[in-house]
Design a protein around this nucleic acid. Structure first.
Length: 451
RNA sequence: GUGGGUAUAGCUCAGGUGGUUAGAGCGCUAGGUUGUGGCCCUAGAGGCCGACGGUUCGAGUCCGUUUAUCCACCCCA
């Protein structure tokens, strides 16, 4: 009989158990970090009514969204977590307490061509703070702290949160008389780090920007130095444009609270080239990059927006949020070999191997170990001894307990440390203490270990 | 959506100018005798050479079509 060839669609990540164990730890670390800052967990359906998801319509979203009919229902898979959040907040407005702080980690779908590090199904890990009518600048100032803590908790050290403000950029363009093409100009300067100053200048010229104006833009966005020095440079433009002045005040406020939030300046820098492609950002924007892997691009992006749910409600709901591309980041970390080898990725801490015809004592030992919190499985297949211990070896189970006739007679367990090869005969109670103690010494390794 | 590359064992890949039973490494299975894994040795299983069509006495190899996949661009996480 012909078999159907098993296959997984391109662009869909499917991991083997050891890698999946690390992925789970990754996401648990994110959950713990987000919740430490007072964000509430939220989940929403993967499938929504197409009319709801495509409320905004047009553009890339329309082209990339998975959409299908089920009977008479026009359905679509969510392509991010922000649109479902907007719907959720509009729908449950009366029952939510504002500012509404939620985190959500979930799969999203984009029907585009998959390639290296680009997936069609991937996890996003979002946090957002939604205000009712207004939202203080302090929420924008707090976001870098959450990003900093989250990546630090993962074990990442070599990263930088880039800060900018859309009002500063748009105000600056208005000062230069480029207000009409600010979107195109922003797109051009956003690519500075990727294509270099010459090509950026050429793009500006193509847009019809006069040479000396282009020069001023290049000087402006290329500003170097500390955050304080960059803010001083910006002060030179104060008084020429209301929007710019407002943005400068916001940027200054966000930067000034970094120390109180515990964010070191070397991890959070004003970068005037950061524009973000998404057009709904209206204030602070964030983009986090790994210092040793700039080619990867942003691993966490977000910003301030003025009206989250305008398509669903008349309520004005300004907010600020960020998204970590979990699947891409995990893929890159694995590819760069930055995931710690010290993480215990075994599904069990202990494998109990019965060697007598009646496994009752072995099962009783396993029960005692589980009561002590030790993740335990019993090997019950009737195979040769070698195959049994090899099973533990392949799974990376750190401890094995042999239960043969000697053990049944003595009431002890023969506990072997698979790393050292050392073996000792212990009562179940002593064995539980020994294993738990050893494990606690080995746990706690960070997920990411930079070279 | 645009441009380029690649499809041979479970995985990574060899297979000059067409020529008999298509190979390697890793992995897998079984041995190397009794209650000790990793290393080593031996043996074995496993392929309609992506699919369809063409050229030819003969195609894994050449040509066409198609599908899948990868890379780059666009855009993004």
């Amino acid at each position: 009989m012909d078999k159907i060839r098993p296959r997984t669609l391109s662009g869909f990540m499917e991991l083997l158990p050891p890698a999946q164990a690390k992925m789970e730890l990754f996401m648990q670390t994110l959950r713990d970090s987000y919740s430490l800052y007072g964000f509430a967990p939220l989940d929403t359906p993967i499938i929504e009514d197409a009319e709801v998801l495509l409320a905004k319509g047009g553009g890339e979203t329309e082209k990339q969204i998975y959409r299908f009919m089920k009977g008479d229902s026009d359905l679509a898979l969510r392509f991010d977590l922000t649109v479902p959040l907007a719907k959720y907040v509009a729908l449950n407005y009366g029952q939510l307490t504002f500012p509404f702080r939620r985190y959500q980690i979930g799969k999203v779908y984009r029907g585009e061509r998959a390639q290296r590090g680009r997936f069609r199904e991937f996890y996003q890990a979002d946090i957002d703070i939604i205000g009712d009518g207004r939202l203080d600048i302090m929420s924008e100032a707090e976001i870098p702290a959450v990003i900093y803590h989250t990546f630090s908790a993962l074990g990442l050290r070599r990263f930088c949160i880039n800060l900018n403000n859309r009002k500063v950029l748009n105000g600056f363009f208005e000062i230069l008389g480029l207000g009409a093409i600010s979107g195109d100009v922003m797109r051009a300067i956003d690519r500075l780090d990727k294509i270099g100053p010459e090509k950026t200048r050429a793009m500006l010229t193509e847009l019809g920007v006069a040479p000396d104006t282009a020069g001023e833009i290049m000087r402006f966005i290329g500003a170097a130095g500390t955050n304080a020095q960059k803010l001083n440079m910006l002060e030179a433009y104060r008084g020429k444009n209301g929007l710019f002045d407002l943005g400068l005040d916001e940027l200054r406020a966000v930067a000034s609270y970094l120390p109180a939030f515990g964010v070191p300046e070397e991890h959070c820098a004003i970068n005037l080239t950061i524009a973000r492609g998404l057009d709904y950002y209206t204030g602070t924007v964030y983009e986090t990059t790994m210092l040793d892997y700039p080619e990867i691009g942003s691993i966490c992006s977000g910003g301030r927006y003025d009206d989250l749910a305008a398509y669903y409600t008349d309520k004005n709901l300004p907010g600020v949020g960020i998204s970590i591309g979990v699947t891409r980041l995990f893929f890159v970390l694995e590819e760069q070999n930055l995931l710690s080898q010290r993480i215990i990725s075994s599904p069990s801490d202990l494998l109990v191997i019965p060697m007598t015809d009646d496994p009752a004592f072995a099962v009783a030992c396993a029960t005692a170990m589980r009561r002590a919190g030790i993740r335990t499985q019993v090997y019950t297949e009737n195979k040769k001894f070698k195959a049994k211990i090899s099973y533990a070896d392949k799974l990376g189970v750190p401890f094995v307990a042999f239960i043969g006739q000697d053990e049944v007679d003595s009431g002890n367990m023969a506990v072997k440390d698979m790393t050292s090869g050392e073996q000792r005969s212990l009562s179940p109670q002593d064995a539980a203490g020994y294993i738990a103690n050893e494990l606690s010494c080995r746990r706690g390794a960070a997920l990411i270990e930079e070279k």
